[in-house]
Amino acid sequence: MSPHLLVHWALVLAMPPLLLGLATKTKAAFAGRVGPPLFQPYYDIVKLLRKGSVFSRTTSWVFRAGPVVGLVTAVAATGLVPLGGHPAPLSFEGDLVLFAYLFALGRFFTVAAALDTGSAFEGMGAAREAAFSALAEPALFLALVSLARASGSQSLTSMLGCGLANVWAHAGAALLLVAVSLFIVLLAENSRIPVDDPTTHLELTMIHEVMVLDHGGPALGFIEYGAAVKLFALGAIVVRVAVPFGTNAWAAWGIFAAAMLGLATAIGVVESVMARLRLVQVPLLLVTACLLSGFGIVLVAR
């Protein structure tokens, strides 16, 4: 195993909770509070993994499959992403489709687990998650496809590899649209403001957090960690499109890590300055993201 692969997996496994911590810290700073420690998400996950579990008698094996599939699909998806332009551990023509569909698989079982509790509350969250992600999926696809068209390749590694800087030179306008669209998808898929509020479970307007109300202990730990990894995977793509610098050198890792931290801060800033959208306006936002990437395509391919 090459040292770059080691760095890849080390970053994938260790960094995601830090992003959550940084976003929370940024929000605290905006609110003039000290906020929880930067490493609080790590402490939470470790603690959850050591706790006991309670399962409702309504639930079945599907309830336990939700966290498992959610975590595995998120980690598997990071295996396809070239972090900072370094080739991904797994790459083949058409892996962008697998990337998007892995998240869909995770979502299928998260939603099924929520419905398995037989709770109206969790059913509501499940319905929202399912409906909104059905709209976010075309946006993600169109964004990836316009990258594919611009780079002439169908694998994430070559789409987001060293050639990306050249693509900026001749199709910068399209990439700008794609970057904005991907950022919206990132916020929607990871249940951040303005689509969802990650900090509360108890409002009727919540989406993701309400789905996992009945999970506890190690299962909840899996879910929290899986959510962080998902943020990392999508974030890595956004960051790479926005900051396409660095060749295959160690410097690229540094740029990538710094950019990821910048992204987490940006998420925190967005969450601090924006209010959550009314639920009926979320589809409008997601359709806008689809249109933006659609234009990316028209610009690249016309």
Binding site: A169, G172, A173, A174, L176, L177, V180, L284, T288, L291, L292, F295, L299
Partner: peptide, 19 residues
């Protein structure tokens, strides 16, 4: 070279206006 990205911003503002 910056004209095209600026025009994209103009287009985005069109969407903002409409949405």
């Amino acid at each position: 070279a910056a004209v095209d990205p600026l025009l994209v911003l103009v287009l985005l503002l069109n969407f903002q206006l409409l949405g």
